[in-house]
Design a protein around this nucleic acid. Structure first.
Length: 656
DNA sequence: ATACGATTTTTTTTT
DNA sequence: AAAATCGTAT
């Protein structure tokens, strides 16, 4: 039996024990949101709800897994039947059994941002709209336009006017390219991330019986991080909950930081209007931070207009005030952080209880150098992701063509690896192959070899060798691990030797990929799983069999969401960086940036530092004087006496 | 015309 | 670090 009285506070308990119906839970930072969700799921199962009738939508797979394993402990039983995961994950699951209704095969491929961008670029070439001297948006931009249009339910025209007015005159050409892209994807059995959501929505619209099936199945629908859902996701949630109306959405409007990818702040703000009979709960007791830290964060967020009223209370004992640290320049900033980390460790704080947060990846450059120079172990939670590195994508491309022989981006990628085959030839051969009935068989013929120039023949023969072995494999019991080994043995290991200076660590990556893949029974499942993973999910993937070495975490604020550390150091708290100048140009940009500042600050349990350099040097502009972030200035007007400011200020020696 | 290596530029945030 | 661009070799 679970001891709800002792393990939950009053606020949490009332949410957990609530019967059903539409519920909105406003959960402040550090108020035990995950705990509440977990206990509610456990409670539902305990009261007799079958796990297969529960849907739990989370922001990352990691969050889903964490919650599931905690539920298991609570009820001491398996909950494999419970549907939990990201919206994309859930959508994928639904589509694998239903996409045929929309004209897709079971084995459709999921492509990531890079493939999507490249496909978009070839659509530009194919449509030949990009005249030499006229400017036309690149693949990445086109992708962004389409994605925003889809996720915010607005027309391409609206997106262009709002975000890319300088391309507005090319709207017809843009529209054509986008249409071709959509057409090509469907033809090639490919879905991008957005398609997963869009197609489920379309599925539900076109096939009322399918929608009814899932609405009937999910007696209880729980959505985490509701403030970061977009319009399609909110629509899907509405469908899922349409039959039983047991919908609980949990979120914190003050932590909505994903509008750039279409998250609709209004979803949570207007939830009471959409569900007039909903009950609203607030979790306002903060267990994480000292009163000093919470005080600063609360003060900062009051400068936002649109939000639910809440009053986060600290329960922890008094600690030390947050500290503002101006440094003379960027190097000094890195110096200070490194120095402070060393001091903190001497005071007995474990390295992995310290995090440095910043707004954008590149803000961490100097710091990375300084940390390396001083030999402080650190872990970067930003920049390129494990699964997006070239060698990982190369190897998985081979598996992709086995699963879906029409996977155009995968073919191009593979062909381009071979000597004598460049972009043009790879393009040509790919185009030819995917027109065939059986591209894989065709790739094994002599006619295939003749498609490239003579000098490419020996290399392409090697490719045929790999494909032959992979094809053989798929007839027997094809495990992803075996397939990966094959690719390595028949050429890719040699390729890495030639191409990379850090071949050893890359091969290690691939071994880890292979280990990870054993969690999946088939290559199909493995690929779908990979495509939907986030890099925060990969923590345990990457160094499963290594002893956990303690490290300082360097992370973007976005990726720090939901995490906490004893000490948090936020760097680049300067105008233009936090808030980021570019973000301010967006509608409601300032409020979202302030929420980022809020999220970053509330990650800290005991100590919080804000750093910024007074002078920046960059190639284009030379030396520039930098102002402290408006978020710092506004919470400490100069009229305010120093003692009543929410933070102290330190002077740093030039020496350190 | 194409492949490929060298050079330069560019980074918001991510499922 | 990777993508885009440029220049040279084939």
């Amino acid at each position: 039996m679970i001891d709800y009285d002792n393990e939950l506070n009053q606020e949490q308990r009332s949410v957990v024990m609530e019967e059903g119906g539409p519920l909105l839970v406003i959960a402040g930072a550090g108020s035990g949101k995950t705990r509440t969700l977990t206990y509610r799921v456990a409670r539902l199962i305990e009261t007799g709800v079958n796990p297969s009738n529960i849907l739990l939508a989370t922001f990352t797979n990691k969050a889903a897994n964490a919650m599931i394993s905690r539920v298991k402990v609570l009820i001491d039983d398996e909950v494999a039947e419970l549907w939990a995961g990201t919206f994309h994950h859930i959508a994928n699951r639904i589509l694998r059994s239903n996409a045929w209704r929309l004209g897709y095969e079971r084995n459709f491929s999921i492509i990531d941002a890079e493939d999507s961008r490249q496909m978009m670029n070839s659509c530009v070439t194919e449509t030949s709209v990009a005249a030499k001297n006229e400017s036309f948006p690149k693949g990445a931009v086109l992708r962004d336009i389409l994605s925003l249009s889809v996720n915010t339910a607005s027309s391409v025209e609206e997106i262009l006017l709002r975000k890319y007015p300088f391309f507005y005159e090319r709207i017809d050409d843009i529209q054509n390219v986008l249409n071709l892209y959509i057409l090509n994807k469907k033809k090639l059995q490919i879905m991008d991330f957005d398609d997963l959501l869009v197609n489920v929505k379309e599925l539900f619209r076109a096939f009322a019986d399918v929608a009814a099936f899932y609405a009937d199945k999910f007696r209880h629908v729980l959505v985490d991080e509701y403030q970061d859902t977009n319009m399609i996701q909110a629509d899907l949630v509405d469908v899922f909950a349409s039959r039983h109306r047991n919908l609980m959405v949990v979120g914190d409007d003050s932590q909505s930081i994903y509008s750039f990818r279409g998250a609709n702040f209004a979803n949570i703000i207007e939830f009471p209007q959409r569900y007039p009979d909903c009950k609203i709960f607030k979790l306002e007791t903060n267990y994480r931070s000292t009163p000093e830290i919470l005080n600063l964060a609360n003060l900062s967020i009051t400068y936002n207009e649109r939000q639910f009223e809440k009053n986060l209370r600290a329960v922890r004992r008094r600690g030390i005030k947050p500290v503002l640290v101006p440094t003379s320049n960027v190097i000094q900033q890195a110096n200070f952080v490194a120095q402070r980390v060393i001091e903190l460790v001497r005071e007995g704080i474990p390295l992995n209880e310290i995090a440095v947060l910043y707004r954008a990846h590149y803000h961490s450059m100097e710091l990375q150098m300084e940390m390396t120079r001083r030999g402080i172990p650190f872990e970067i939670r930003s920049g390129i992701r494990f699964f997006e590195q070239a060698h990982i994508k190369d190897v998985t491309a081979y598996l992709r063509i086995v699963v879906n022989p029409y996977d155009e981006p995968a073919w191009k990628r593979i062909l381009g690896l071979y000597a004598g085959v460049g972009k043009v030839t790879a393009d040509k051969i790919t185009k030819y192959l995917i027109k065939q009935e059986k591209p894989l068989d065709m790739a094994l013929t002599d006619a295939f070899l003749k498609k490239a120039k003579k000098n490419a023949e020996p290399a392409l023969t090697e490719l045929q060798e790999v494909i032959r072995h992979l094809a053989d494999l798929s007839e027997n019991e094809a495990t992803p691990a075996k397939a990966i080994d094959l690719v390595l043995d028949y050429g890719y290991r040699a390729h890495m030797q030639q191409k990379y200076t850090d071949m050893v660590s890359r091969e290690e990556d691939l071994n880890q990929l292979s280990t990870f893949s054993t969690k999946f029974s088939t290559i199909d499942n493995f690929l779908a799983g990979l495509a939907l993973l986030t890099n925060t999910d990969t923590d345990d993937v990457e160094r499963e069999d290594f002893i956990e070495e303690q490290k300082v975490v360097l992370s973007t604020i976005h990726q720090a969401k939901g995490l906490e550390w004893q000490v948090v150091i936020i760097i680049w708290c300067a105008e233009g960086m936090l808030p980021l100048e570019r973000a301010l140009r967006e509608e409601d940009g300032e409020e979202e940036e302030r929420r980022l500042f809020y999220v970053a600050s509330t990650r800290a349990k005991d100590q919080l530092y804000f750093c910024y350099p007074l002078i920046d040097f960059n190639r284009g502009m030379g030396h520039q004087i930098i102002s402290p972030s408006r978020f710092i200035r506004e919470i400490a007007p100069s009229s305010l006496h120093e003692r009543s400011r929410p933070f102290d200020q330190w002077q740093v020696d030039e020496e350190c």
